[in-house]
Write a protein that binds this DNA or RNA. Sequence first.
DNA 1: CTTTAGCACTTCCATTATATGACTGCTAAA
DNA 2: TTTAGCAGTCATATAATGGAAGTGCTAAAG
Lengths: 335, 335
Amino acid sequence: MLSNRQENILKFIVEEYIKSAKPISSHQICDKLECSSATIRNEMVYLEELKLLEKNHFASGRIPSEKGYKYYVENLMQPKDMTGEDMLKLQTIFHNNTLDLNDTIKRSIEIVSEITNYTTVVLGSGAKDNRLKKVEVVPLEDNKILTMVITDKGFVEHKNLFLPKNVSTEEVKKTVDLINKLVVGTPLDEISEKLEYSVKPIIGKYVRQHELIYNTFYDAFSEITNKESDVHFVGRSNFLKQPEFSDIEKIKEIFSKFEDANCIREIAEDKNGINVYVGSDSELSDEVSVVKTHYNIDGEEGTIAIIGPKRMEYDRVVSLLDYIKSNIGGDHEEE
Amino acid sequence: MLSNRQENILKFIVEEYIKSAKPISSHQICDKLECSSATIRNEMVYLEELKLLEKNHFASGRIPSEKGYKYYVENLMQPKDMTGEDMLKLQTIFHNNTLDLNDTIKRSIEIVSEITNYTTVVLGSGAKDNRLKKVEVVPLEDNKILTMVITDKGFVEHKNLFLPKNVSTEEVKKTVDLINKLVVGTPLDEISEKLEYSVKPIIGKYVRQHELIYNTFYDAFSEITNKESDVHFVGRSNFLKQPEFSDIEKIKEIFSKFEDANCIREIAEDKNGINVYVGSDSELSDEVSVVKTHYNIDGEEGTIAIIGPKRMEYDRVVSLLDYIKSNIGGDHEEE
DNA sequence: CTTTAGCACTTCCATTATATGACTGCTAAA
DNA sequence: TTTAGCAGTCATATAATGGAAGTGCTAAAG
């Protein structure tokens, strides 16, 4: 258990280091807390024994360790009031009624990325658990047709297909009718299976060239349902602005993680509320922290995450995320 | 006019520098061309006077200048045979019949980025010149409806709308019918105008709550048509692998250009064939080169670009792009 | 028992000096 | 026209130096 003074020292060091990115000396602290630098030094030795603080070298000031950041986030951090400026910028998004949920979220994290200089991500949940609402085809010029798969949650996936020359649009329409009659309401991830045992056996009765058409649709479906959930990244290059990433090797490490979308998807499983993952807990790199939250608005779900250096303004980021979350929820109910 | 030997020297320097990223000395050259280093040095002085070569400092070897690269690309470069390995990787994409044009292109530039370690981009032309094929609404649960705008080229844009409580789906459908009757066939960029003078005046006769519904659609349309053409970037972080970008400031410059999608869009206007833009001609940065080409397959058009350091394997990149271009053209006609 | 002043000690960092290696430019001879 | 050879220039790596920053420890004071 830490004494009050020890907590104050830790809090000061974390917050000051977040601002300056430079190790904090005992002298800097004794100006704030009313005691001498020697006293502070004694306390710092204790905090270092608890692995809450670290030194770069023998005679450097202290910096927070990963454990120190965590202690700060869990015990010392106070919710930060948002500045009017930040609020104003976000409100122009929330009050724009022409935006749907996805766009609102995307725009707002763009703002967040811009004002904080961190990297932000939205991770749609994709359409895996959606159910098929309908399939539709629209004939375009020549032998080109547009195929659309529409889900109950309003997710649309489309694909332009080129019909083999000996297949008429009529035949395709019959297939589509059959699919709509038999498969609508099925969750997307069971579609392939259902096509195979409920459509395939009877399609031959109604449609000529059924093999070709069936295969085309089967392929289109499996491609659509395998489609990875969409990842919307903003402000990756903000990492370049952080002094602790002036080393090109660290940048490489982070960016290669970013290019691998799976890695981002892994950070999605989540508890309720807003969660902070410091350093190694982030699953991305020991050098970064992730603040994230899950949303579920009328069945559309996803994850919003803010990624920055461990030396991140946790209080500000948490309150921004909180603000966004409370605003996207009630968007359409206001009117 | 350069002598044969001078051209050989320039060619050797460019190609060797592309491989090694290190200034080329006269000694390296005289092993290849059969003469002494002193002779080479004399020639190099001449090439430097013509601004085809540069030095980093007094006693360094030579590196190609921007003008030198251009001379190389226009006069000295020979088409490079593709390696079997590169071809094989691309063919797995081209022979996959379930992919439509966009996906084929995206996948193939992903391959290119991977095998070359350069950055690649596809720039769809968007749907600006497309004509409206139809508008469709699908009622989802509660007061949520899915609105889709479909164009004659198979471009689909969709948006989830929340209906105000006092508006029924029937009313919306009437509006959609009206739009389909009156506006179909109009180029997307003229839609707003046409809505205003041909739909708005009469909608009041058929639809109750017409103001609300009309405005909702009007907004949705203008948002959809203003939507920027899609930009698909791959392998941005490949720049980090290039030794000339070990300086974080240069990386910042490039990456900030990449974040600004407009900047990419500017590189789109194009002559026929495959074009090489070295350094300042690239419009991105003096430090990079862009190799790009425009495609137009059955009305779907766009630009493919490969972005790398000036010290780029021009011959290889050109042949890759050539190969892709000749393969995406005839994709669906093979069957 | 806690706090403080003071000093010795450690490490970093920027500066300077030095040596080395890599090339070129030039001159004079082939 | 080509070549050999040498002096001159610059980058790079390494080592030496002096200071600045900040700690740990000790002993005295509160």
